[in-house]
């Protein structure tokens, strides 16, 4: 058998992850209102958003526990889209 079915996380893990997602969202909403954070606001928001993204993909979508091949099918699209469209926007000098 391939390493298809590792122990999936329990319901408790899911609740904790959801708590984390809620807290991060609250922080995200707060960030624009805190003037002291203005210089790093964009970076901070992107980091916080990426953290939520990564957690949902890794735990809720089981990518951390499932076949490695699934990572490839998804990440090739995700990484490809980021690179290709970064080039498009750069060529428009949109940044």
């Amino acid at each position: 058998m391939a390493t298809a079915t590792h122990a999936h996380p329990t319901a408790k893990t899911y609740w904790l992850i959801a708590l984390f997602l809620g807290v991060v969202t609250a922080v995200e909403v707060a960030v624009p209102y805190i003037d002291a954070l203005d210089p790093i606001r964009a970076v901070l928001l992107i980091l916080l958003g990426s953290a939520k993204f990564a957690v949902v993909v890794a735990v809720f979508m089981h990518l951390r526990y499932d076949l490695k091949a699934y990572r490839f099918y998804f990440l090739i699209g995700l990484a490809g889209a980021i690179v290709v469209f970064a080039v498009v926007l750069a060529s428009f000098r949109a940044f």
């Binding site: 099918y73 998804f74 090739i76 699209g77 995700l78 490809g80 889209a81 290709v84």
Partner: peptide, 8 residues
């Protein structure tokens, strides 16, 4: 694979 496509 479909979700990778959706990313684009």
């Amino acid at each position: 694979a479909f979700l990778g496509s959706e990313a684009f």
